[in-house]
Amino acid sequence: EKAEFLSVTALLFCSVGIYNAPVSQAPVLMLHPRAWNMVEHNMMVPGPLFDFGLLMFHNAKLILQNQSGPFFYLSKVERYMEARLWSQISFWTEKKLGLPAGCIKATVLIECVLALFEMEEILYELKEHSAGLNCGIWDYSASFVNRFGHRADFLLPDHSKYVDMEKRFLHSYMDLLVQTCHRRGALATGGMAALLLPGDKENATRSNKSCIKAGVDGFMVYDMDLIEPMQKLFQLHSHGQNQLLQLREDITVTPEDLLIMPAGGLTRYGLRYNIALGVLFIEAWLSGVISSIWGRLRIQQRQRYVWQWIRHQVRLEDDGAVVTRALVSSLAEVLMEDLKAAIHCQTSRDKQRLMTAVSMFLETVLKNDFPEFLTTYLNLDHTFHSSQS
Rank of each mutant, 00 (worst) to 15 (best):
K2Y: 07
L6P: 00
A10C: 13
C14R: 03
Y19S: 12
Y19W: 08
N20I: 03
A26C: 14
A26F: 04
A35C: 14
W36Q: 09
V39N: 07
E40Y: 14
H41K: 15
L49E: 06
L49T: 07
L49C: 06
L49P: 00
F52D: 03
M56N: 07
A60N: 08
L62C: 06
Q65T: 05
Q67E: 03
G69H: 03
F72P: 01
L74C: 04
V77C: 14
V77R: 02
E78Y: 12
Q88E: 15
Q88W: 05
F91K: 15
K95W: 04
G98H: 08
A101C: 09
C103H: 01
V108Y: 01
V108S: 02
V108K: 04
V108L: 11
C112M: 11
F117R: 12
M119E: 05
E128L: 08
A131C: 14
A131G: 14
I137L: 13
Y140K: 04
A142W: 03
A142M: 08
H150A: 11
A152M: 07
A152N: 10
F169M: 10
Q179G: 05
L187P: 01
A188C: 15
A193Y: 00
L196T: 08
G199D: 10
G199T: 12
D200I: 02
K201N: 09
R206N: 14
I212C: 11
M220W: 00
I227P: 02
P229M: 02
P229L: 02
P229H: 02
M230L: 15
L236D: 08
N242G: 05
Q243E: 04
L244W: 06
R248T: 07
E249N: 13
L258D: 10
L259C: 12
P262D: 07
L266Y: 06
Y273L: 13
A284I: 02
V289A: 07
I290V: 14
I290G: 02
W294G: 04
G295H: 07
G295R: 02
R304Q: 12
Q308F: 10
W309A: 03
Q313R: 15
R315S: 05
D319H: 06
G320H: 10
L331N: 01
A332R: 01
I343A: 00
Q346E: 13
T356D: 14
A357G: 10
V358E: 08
V358H: 04
N368Y: 05
F370V: 02
Y377D: 13
D381R: 10
H382M: 10
H382G: 01
H385Y: 12
S387H: 03
